[in-house]
């Protein structure tokens, strides 16, 4: 399931290009809408190939996202070659430029960087959805068969969850690029999973780990004078490795210790 976010982050490319071609502008709202539709289409196609064509889910993910991403690349080279929608930017992003893209109020004052406003709204919306529908999301993720039997619409909650993943991906990758989106969507939760057995604590912990990775990665990049996105992804990998070895519940050391004691 973790790789669905990877798939979405790449597969939204044709959505962005098509939104640009239809609207003729690089206004971020149309792009987010275009990308969001493609994000949901991606999860739908993955489910479809997995369930109907009996493809393994990893194979279904691989087929769908490479195909959609390739269509995006073809569309760019055919129709948008002269516009600044280049693939490097889409893939790697450039977080260093986000402060330059400010929202300017009518009286000429600067409000805040656009990315901050967009990401804060996404954070709020997702926070509210998780708070309100925590039990439904937990139940349908843990045991979809039982959930369906007792009358919960597993499909609805699944697509709501995947909709949130696509919204997050689309909103973030404009500023940080597809690769860092994947790093931050998957690695902090995986780290938190190694650190706790409690689902709520895992949600908070993964947010905290994401913040720590971003902040420490930023200072690492300043110190090295290197790519910020790469440094953040590196730091999240380092944190994961730390949890893998030192976690008090599932860590390598702890398991060795338990085995030695027995």
């Amino acid at each position: 399931m973790a790789l669905v976010s990877d798939a979405i982050s790449h597969a939204v490319l044709p959505g962005i290009v098509l939104a640009f071609l239809f609207s003729g502008s690089r206004d971020s709202l149309t792009m987010v809408v275009g990308a969001g539709i493609l994000g949901l289409l991606t999860t739908f196609l993955i489910e479809f190939f997995h369930k109907k064509a009996k493809l393994q889910s990893d194979a279904a993910i691989g087929v769908v996202f490479t195909w959609l991403f390739a269509i995006g690349v073809v569309l760019i080279s055919l129709f948008a070659g002269k516009v600044d929608l280049d693939q490097d930017c889409v893939l790697y992003g450039e977080i260093a430029y986000t402060p330059l893209d400010m929202i300017i109020l009518e009286n000429g004052n600067l409000l805040a960087p656009k990315a901050v406003v967009v990401m804060t709204s996404v954070l709020l919306i997702i926070g509210i959805i998780i708070t309100l529908f925590y039990k439904e999301l937990l139940l349908t993720s843990f045991d979809p068969g039982y959930a369906t039997a007792i009358g919960f619409s597993t499909a609805f909650w699944h697509y709501l969850l995947m909709g949130m993943v696509s919204a997050t991906t689309v909103a973030s990758f404009e500023s940080v690029g597809a690769i860092l989106v994947v790093a931050l969507l998957i690695v902090p939760p995986a780290t938190a999973y190694l650190l706790t057995d409690n689902f709520k604590r895992m949600l908070w912990l993964s947010s905290l780990i994401g913040v720590i990775a971003s902040a420490s990665g930023y200072y690492l990049a300043v110190w090295m004078d290197g790519s910020i996105a790469a440094a953040i992804a590196t730091m999240s990998g380092v944190l994961f490795a730390g949890a893998f070895v030192f976690s008090p519940t599932h860590g390598l050391l702890k398991r060795k210790l338990v085995r030695a004691m027995n």
């Binding site: 937990l138 993720s141 843990f142 045991d143 999973y193 706790t196 057995d197 409690n198 689902f199 895992m202």
Partner: peptide, 9 residues
């Protein structure tokens, strides 16, 4: 039918 490593009690 379920993943028993899921972090719940």
């Amino acid at each position: 039918s379920v993943d028993w490593d899921f972090p719940v009690s």
